[in-house]
Design a protein around this nucleic acid. Structure first.
Lengths: 243, 243
DNA sequence: GCAAAAGTGTTCGTCGTACACCCATGC
DNA sequence: GCATGGGTGTACGACGAACACTTTTGC
């Protein structure tokens, strides 16, 4: 059954993944391409998104949009901001594009970001020409989506300092150095390995496994996992005022 | 000139104020009252809010709504979440109310909260029967606004720990104990006065004035002010990972 | 002079930070 | 055997936490 779209309200999804090889925090974008009489009118990338249906919640829209792009459900998501400037879709290319789509010129979008494991996404399986791009080196991005990506990234930077969401971006079994690389990528800082290692290993919810890396060409590193159960049990609100 | 409303998108404003006498963090709500044949159909409180106009940004809508309620401009505001469940306005009373208003049943609202000085608001001057209520003791609240208030409050709790927004809720000249009372009210915790006092006084952007309280019946306290200039100059991002 | 709130110091423990070298492994 | 990244220990300083009494003022 076809559902009824709300034409002036959409959800856009910033999908973050981490490439442990290139040590790069990436965003998943889809190709936007349009030509007419062999002239290329639009050729850039945008976030994945869609209209909200009449009978679904915003969270459901986001979940649906992500699943359509990646096939994945139950990923960490956060609604972080609504974007609704009257002129947010008013660039020349965007106007050309919108003519071909069932879009309202004054559309408000509720933006979410997702954190997932890059390896879980099979880019060949989807029809959108989706591609990963480093947050620090984005291609040409349509609509106001560059701004949306950067605001998502800012939110992520703050949130990863106080909540263990970083592990959503890593494989279930990871090395300490991978965690460090990820923090360094997200925050654009250098971290002292000895201090970081000690800090992490001392956490009770970082559990050393009876396993080491396999298939690496150097000394294989100890693997760890994150226990959400233990974290939740230990967790207590910290009221430290640091202004 | 009358502007064109977007019928399915609104902005709702959670207005926070602090009562230094009762030491209570308050929310400003407006009366919702409807009777028919002397029967009271609706009698509760709601947030102030309004439709977004076709040609204004969401921030502008929020600013306009606040000004209409309080006469105040340039107050601290934060867009914190969009609420869009299909059934968010579907309580019995809400349905009765909506019949009398130009409301779309499926309306998405972008929620903001404002922080302002209670003394700046003159409740007698407005036409909405607005009233302050303690966050910890809300009256009957219509729509899904209770939930919106609580989510705003949660966001405020987190944000006041890392940013000096607390001073938006206090008079320009305040005592150390007033700041402490405010933190205690917001966070529902007890703070040691000696430690708190030392901590605050050591901040360079907390400036002791050549003034003391007047008109108090006990020992008048030293007054301080917050210097945003000094704060901004000193400010540097803190990348402390505390997970 | 008394009630009420303002204001004051010290000790301890935790944790963040700075810093340089050896070790285990695969090739 | 050697290159590569994995892994380790110590000392210092800052700051949060716990804790109880004196002082100042208005009435």
């Amino acid at each position: 059954m076809e559902q009824k779209k709300i034409l002036n309200i959409s959800v856009d999804c910033v999908v973050f993944g981490f490439d442990t090889i290139t040590k790069s925090l990436n965003v998943l974008l889809i190709k936007r391409y349009l030509e007419k009489n062999k002239e290329v009118l639009v050729d850039d990338y945008v976030l994945t998104g869609y209209h909200v249906y009449e009978n679904e919640t915003l969270d459901q829209t986001a979940t649906r949009v992500l699943e359509e792009l990646t096939g994945l459900k139950n990923q960490y998501k956060k609604q972080f901001k609504a974007f609704g400037d009257p002129d947010r879709l008013m660039n020349e290319k965007d106007l050309v594009w919108i003519k071909n789509e069932e879009f309202n010129l004054r559309t408000i979008t509720i933006a979410y970001y997702f954190l997932l494991k890059t390896d879980d996404v099979d880019l060949n399986k989807n029809k959108y020409n989706a591609k990963w791009f480093p947050v620090s080196n984005l291609p040409e991005v349509g609509f106001d989506h560059k701004n949306i990506i950067l605001e998502a990234y800012e939110d992520l930077k703050v949130k990863c300092l106080s909540e263990p969401i970083i592990f959503k971006l890593l494989p279930d079994k990871f090395t300490i150095n991978e965690v460090q690389d990820l923090y360094q990528s997200i925050l654009c800082i250098e971290i002292d390995n000895r201090n970081f290692r000690r800090k992490l290993i001392n956490k009770k919810y970082i559990i050393a496994l009876d396993e080491k890396q396999v298939g690496v060409s150097k000394k294989p590193a100890q693997l760890y996992m994150f226990s959400k159960d233990i974290y939740d049990k230990m967790f207590q609100k910290n009221y430290l005022i640091s202004i």
